[in-house]
Design a binder for these strands. Structure first.
Lengths: 145, 145
DNA sequence: GCGAAAATGAAGCCTAGGCTACACTTTTGT
DNA sequence: ACAAAAGTGTAGCCTAGGCTTCATTTTCGC
């Protein structure tokens, strides 16, 4: 542990970091589903629960629950036995997520990570990259072409 | 996985990526607790549940539950009303996690992320960095001092 | 040495995110 | 047109990981 820790007493501020990481985690699944739904709409004009479930590697009721949460958060809309669609906010989220994913993969590849590994790791990593770090990645990629 | 994957259509195997990311997530908390306990043992000779809880930013019963899980996984041992200690496997895990954390922070800083942000983001990121990526980071850091 | 404070454990509740089983629509094929 | 197949929804169960409340044990101060 380096950086800004009080050497005496207990080093804290640690709790904050974990709390923040936990918050990021709760957003991660929502982001994945939003991006997935956006993909499906682009490909097929709509996203069906069954296909969302297949691609996410979960059973269909799990996908249904996730969609319900997306709707609660104002990111998606759907009617019974019909496809799922993203709201404006949902589309914006999906776009942000996709761009961030690209940047993360690009940076990993740029520092020597094999492309397939970069794609694999990015799936987990992307949700924990802050805006500040993302911009640093972009700046570095621009400066190191 | 009941239903098989259609090898046709476009880019899948996506399900696998998500499944893997989910598995990594289930390991993340265990890793954080193991590292934290190791820190406390180094500092105080033992790790008390209350202090683990404080530093993780959770209530003490939450820490107790996490310790129970660590014990189930063979990573820690403890007796009622006594401190928590790591098994050999737990110590090894903590060491690996700490080394990985440092490498991730170093790489982030090296590409221009502010130190405080790097520490913050690394807390979430580190759990999703594969061995391959970690080694790529180390190689890159050696080549770009 | 004893009573109070601090630490720990145990019970019970909540949400998220998995699952299976089953019921009900919609789509589809003859 | 209608029955079978496919898709979707609902209910109910599980685990993980949060929480509060309360009981118990240890530790500490006097």
């Amino acid at each position: 542990m380096t950086s800004a820790e009080s050497p005496e007493c207990e080093g804290h501020g640690a709790a904050e970091r974990f709390t923040q990481a936990r918050a990021a985690q709760s957003m991660a699944l929502l982001e994945d589903y939003a991006e997935m739904i956006d993909d499906l709409i682009v490909e097929h004009g709509e996203a069906r629960v069954t296909e969302i479930a297949q691609r996410m590697g979960v059973a269909h009721p799990t996908a249904t629950k996730a969609v319900a949460r997306l709707k609660r958060e104002g990111l998606a809309i759907s009617r019974p036995y019909r496809g799922v669609f993203l709201t404006e906010a949902g589309v914006a989220l999906a776009a942000r997520v996709r761009a961030r994913h690209r940047t993360v993969v690009d940076l990993l590849v740029a520092v020597g990570v094999p492309v397939e590994t970069a794609e694999l790791d990015a799936e987990g990593l992307e949700h924990y990259v802050s805006e500040t770090t993302l911009r640093a990645f972009e700046a570095w990629l621009r400066a190191n072409p």
